[in-house]
Computed example of a mutant assay.
Amino acid sequence: MPVTYVLVHGAWHSGQCWSKVVPRLAANGSAVFTPTLTGYGETRHLLSPSTGLGTHTDDVVRLLVEEDLREVVLVGHSYAGMVISGVANEVPERIARLVYLDAMVPEHGESALDALPAARGMLGDGWRVPPPQEPFGLFGLTEPADIAWLRTMVSDQTTRCLTEPVAMDNPALAAIPRTHIHCTPKPEGVEPRPVPAVQPDGEPADVRELVSGHDCMITVPDELSKMLLDVSSAVGAGR
């Protein structure tokens, strides 16, 4: 059954990173939205010290409300695990499932630095956090064409994105099913937070693995799309 996907990119990227996945999901009639968060990609000119997690949460909430999207499979890659958590806290009635795609998985009041302490090494002296000089090292790309394409896309993010805490205090948030997709193998020192055996909604944890570098939407779009289609199969059928 066709569903609505909202795919939220991670730090430094833009909505363009999902270009290989969109047609694969849309082929069965599903609606797919790939917003670019404020300050990235084509909106990089809007980046300022005040741009942060709250800004990006508002970006996605606004999309859901303005497009009147419901029963959404909300996918957050990497840093966007923080974003989709905040969005679900704001508009839980619009979300059918949260998918943490190789993502930060926070608790209420945590920042990205709490969810992934290894990210502390990204901080510098100023408010800008530039993308890595060698994206293939951090994002798991090996093909020269993919690396060149990613270089045209990435841009700075802010320190505030990493330090601003997420609100997850809406009781309705716990009722939303979750799926965790981990890309494997992981670089040394970057381990995902353990997923509890039981989800907040009381269901057994749904944890899946993709053999891929971090940017799986670029490296293995077929496999990722099939997994997302499978994950969404319960939406609209009583979950």
Rank of each mutant, 00 (worst) to 15 (best):
G238L: 07
V195C: 04
I218Y: 11
P92R: 12
S225C: 08
W18M: 07
N170G: 10
L64W: 04
G86L: 06
E42G: 03
E90V: 14
V154M: 13
V3E: 13
L113K: 00
P171W: 00
L141Y: 06
C161G: 10
Y5T: 12
G76C: 08
D222A: 08
P187F: 02
G202V: 05
T36M: 10
M1V: 10
P35E: 11
M122K: 00
P196W: 00
L101P: 06
P221Y: 09
L123M: 04
P221N: 12
H56K: 04
A112V: 01
T43Y: 02
G124N: 03
S212A: 15
E188C: 05
H56Y: 05
E107M: 13
G15N: 14
R128S: 02
V198Y: 01
E110Q: 15
I176V: 11
L210Y: 05
G124I: 02
H45K: 14
T219D: 15
G52H: 09
A119T: 04
V91F: 11
V61R: 09
M227N: 08
E191H: 06
E134C: 09
L141P: 11
T4G: 03
M1F: 03
G189K: 09
T179M: 08
D114H: 14
H180L: 06
R44H: 13
S225L: 01
S111A: 07
P144R: 03
H56P: 02
T4Q: 10
E67P: 07
P117F: 02
A175M: 06
G39F: 09
S78A: 05
V60W: 03
R178L: 08
T184I: 04
M104R: 00
C17Y: 07
W12S: 05
S225G: 02
S14D: 03
Y5F: 15
V65P: 04
S111G: 03
A118R: 08
A88N: 05
H13M: 14
P144Y: 02
V3A: 14
P194W: 06
F139N: 05
G15R: 14
L98Q: 12
W149E: 14
L74V: 06
V32D: 11
D169N: 04
L224A: 09
G124E: 01
A31D: 01
K20D: 15
A172Y: 00
